[in-house]
């Protein structure tokens, strides 16, 4: 398959008073047409920043994209002009966010906000765009959408707002949808509805999806491939079945161990990973996970492992071979 998106060695830093925060440290990812990729990690691991860097939505300053490229349809998103990236945002790449309350403008009616990308990118008139917005809102499951176009965000429920947000992101029929923890702020039942909705829309519209989450359970049924991020690095990447059956990085194993399982025998306690992820103010010369790792060896303290293929559908950045407990 042809690659839709090809991110190579992306690095994003933030200047703060405490020094330079290395938020994204050389992330390389690719996504083929129609594929769904799940990016998993704790808060602050750089997964949102990676995606925001891609669309150049990082506030600059203090943020700065230091290195890397991100080819989308042959164009490097990090190099194109401001005007060009604007024509891509919302038109070829749609984005949905975590909290549909704060990410909607409180004083503009929903209909107008959903319709806006059409006015900007497709030169629709206001009336045409609103008409299309109503259809789109129907499509994402908002009943009597036409009557609700003039409602304000606070008049929608949380789940309805997220549906509207999805309608807004997809109204220009983008090739890629970036979903930044879109179900985190929702009830579990609503979460399931939203995921189902996205699955249906993927079927109907055929876009690729990058789904950011900290919930391994959510992406399991959604993504074909999973990338785990830690401290601004991708530390493991694999096809979804391979990943759940055969996780390699101690961090990924820890994450999976902290999930309750229906097929677990007996009363196994859930495992938690002690400590917090580090905030990197310089490029580390040790594995960033080493301080929390129960398998850490001498080499982990002096050399940061690179992401390497262990088989043709699995990459991992770890010095330890999880099966033998010895160095790879």
């Amino acid at each position: 398959m042809q690659d839709l998106l090809d991110i190579l060695n992306l690095k994003t830093h933030f200047q703060t008073q405490e020094g330079t925060i290395h938020a994204v440290n050389g992330v390389s990812l690719s996504l083929s047409d129609g594929e769904t990729l799940g990016i998993v990690g704790e808060s602050g691991c750089g997964k949102s920043v990676t995606m925001m860097s891609l669309l150049r939505l990082i506030p600059m300053p203090p943020g700065r994209i230091v290195a890397g490229s991100a080819h989308f349809f042959g164009r490097d998103l990090l190099q194109v002009s401001d005007t060009e990236i604007r024509t891509i945002r919302g038109s070829q790449i749609g984005m949905i966010f975590q909290d549909p309350m704060t990410f909607f403008n409180p004083v503009i009616p929903i209909g107008k906000q959903v319709a806006e990308p059409l006015e900007v990118h497709r030169n629709f008139t206001r009336a045409q765009a609103l008409e299309r917005a109503a259809e789109m809102l129907e499509m994402v499951g908002i009943p009597r959408a036409r009557d609700r176009l003039s409602d304000y965000p606070h008049q929608f429920s949380g789940g309805m707002r997220q549906r509207a947000m999805i309608a807004m992101a997809l109204i220009c029929n983008p090739k890629l949808l970036i979903a930044d923890e879109p179900t985190t702020a929702l009830d579990v039942t609503i979460q399931a509805q939203i995921i189902e909705l996205v699955l249906r829309l993927r079927e109907e519209l055929g876009m690729s999806i990058i789904w950011i989450t900290h919930d391994l359970g959510v992406v399991a049924g959604l993504a074909q491939r999973i990338a785990v991020m830690y401290a601004g690095y991708i530390i493991e990447e694999a096809l979804v079945d391979e990943f759940y059956a055969n996780p390699q990085h101690p961090y990924a194993i820890g994450l999976l161990g902290s999930l309750p399982r229906l097929d677990a025998n007996g009363h196994k306690r859930l495992v938690s990973i002690d400590g917090l992820p580090p905030v990197l103010t310089s490029e580390p010369n040790s594995c960033p996970f080493a301080p929390r790792c129960w398998l850490a060896m001498e080499r982990c303290q002096r050399e940061n492992p690179q992401l390497r293929y262990i088989n043709d559908k699995h990459r991992v950045a770890c010095w330890v071979d999880i099966d033998s407990g010895k160095e790879r």
């Binding site: 925001m52 669309l55 939505l57 604007r86 024509t87 891509i88 945002r89 919302g90 038109s91 749609g94 984005m95 966010f97 909290d99 704060t102 990410f103 909607f104 403008n105 409180p106 806006e116 990308p117 900007v120 990118h121 807004m168």
Partner: peptide, 17 residues
């Protein structure tokens, strides 16, 4: 600094709009 500013930019609006 509100989140909906990010949404507006993510929709591809010009900074003026």
């Amino acid at each position: 600094s509100q989140d909906y500013m990010t949404t507006a930019r993510a929709k591809g609006l010009t900074e003026r709009l």
